[in-house]
């Protein structure tokens, strides 16, 4: 991580600190770790949100890939929320590849270096701009429906992400069923090459508020990756599932989720097949486990 990036992250956190100690809190948050719901920030309110997304474990060796997202969200309208993220990454890998070499998602290894030596890096990844429009409200309409669009750009590539958000509540809104269909197209510059990819993710989940402030749920993901930026030809399809626990109060909330990669991966070419071990795909694509911690602290500007 260079000095400029460190200053940028610290400046954002300092800004959040100043705002948070000065004003009363307001909030809008969903009970899932990975799934977006249609609980948006009320008009004129802000929220600071920190994501810590850890991908851990490949077929052998050591592998950790931590994505940090620091975000300020703002309710532009009651039905329209915007957000600005700063994304950074920490990666540690050591002889984790199927062939015993060092690599994996998040690594940016010089092709001329020793492929068996340990690798670690902390780097600024990108800035992204989130937009969520709620077209149907799950509290007043038959079900909730919304659209999400997020462009991201940084020194190692760019991404465009679209999501279709669905939500249906039951039992006095204690039980939340939600689904996201995610379309993503990206261009990544690493290890001296440019990679083009596109992704279709389908994420579904259920969460139940079993006590005041506490919800427990489950989230499942099917991830389908394609070569090229226009969903050109399928590369692989992988499945993840795991539990989520959510705590929320007037002043802050936190959600912890874990997804494990199931041994059901399908590869659609020889390259992808070569990095599948016991039904799980690794290589430059995935880890065995995904852990997400999200913490949200709503706030309101003191002069509003």
């Amino acid at each position: 991580m260079n000095r400029y990036c460190a200053r940028l992250v610290n400046a954002l956190l300092t800004l959040a600190t100043v705002l948070l100690v000065a004003v009363p809190a307001r909030a809008g948050e969903g009970p899932f770790a990975f799934i977006y719901t249609l609980d948006l920030q009320p008009k004129g309110t802000f929220q600071f949100e920190q994501w810590e997304y850890l991908q851990a474990g490949q077929s052998q060796g050591d592998y950790l890939f931590l994505t940090n997202r620091s975000e300020i969200e703002y309710g532009f309208k009651n039905w329209f929320q915007i957000g600005l993220y700063i994304n950074t990454e920490y990666t540690y890998a050591y002889q984790n590849g199927v062939d015993g070499t060092t690599g994996g998602p998040g690594t940016n290894i010089d092709p001329n270096s020793d492929p068996f030596s340990p690798y670690s890096s902390f780097r600024f990844k990108s800035i992204s701009f989130e937009n969520i429009v709620r077209l149907m409200n799950p509290y007043t309409d038959a079900f909730g429906f919304g659209l999400y669009f997020e462009p991201a750009i940084g020194p190692y590539g760019y991404e465009l992400e679209w999501k279709f958000l669905f939500q249906k509540n039951f039992l006095d809104d204690r039980l939340v069923l939600a689904a996201n269909i995610v379309l993503e197209t990206e261009q990544e510059w690493r290890s001296g090459t440019t990679e083009y990819a596109s992704v279709i993710d389908t994420i579904i989940g259920a969460s139940y508020r079993f006590a005041d402030k506490w919800s427990l749920g489950v989230e499942a993901r099917n991830h389908r990756e394609f070569s090229g930026q226009a969903f050109n030809s399928p590369e692989h399809s992988a499945y993840f599932i795991g539990p989520t626990i959510h705590y929320s109060s007037e002043k802050w909330w936190a959600t912890l989720g874990w997804r494990h990669q199931l041994p059901w991966t399908q590869a659609f070419n020889d390259d992808q097949q070569s990095v599948i071990v016991n039904g799980q795909i690794f290589g430059g694509e995935h880890a065995g486990d995904e852990i997400m911690l999200r913490v949200g602290i709503p706030f309101k500007l003191p002069w509003r």
């Binding site: 992250v9 956190l13 959040a16 600190t17 100690v21 009363p24 920190q50 902390f122 109060s249 913490v295």
Partner: peptide
């Protein structure tokens, strides 16, 4: 693993935000 002190700041904030009763 190298920890980045700045990332712990949000957790410190959570601890210091006071709760408010509303009866």
């Amino acid at each position: 693993m190298r920890w980045i002190p700045a990332l712990t700041a949000p957790l410190a904030l959570i601890v210091t935000v006071p709760a408010a009763a509303a009866v």
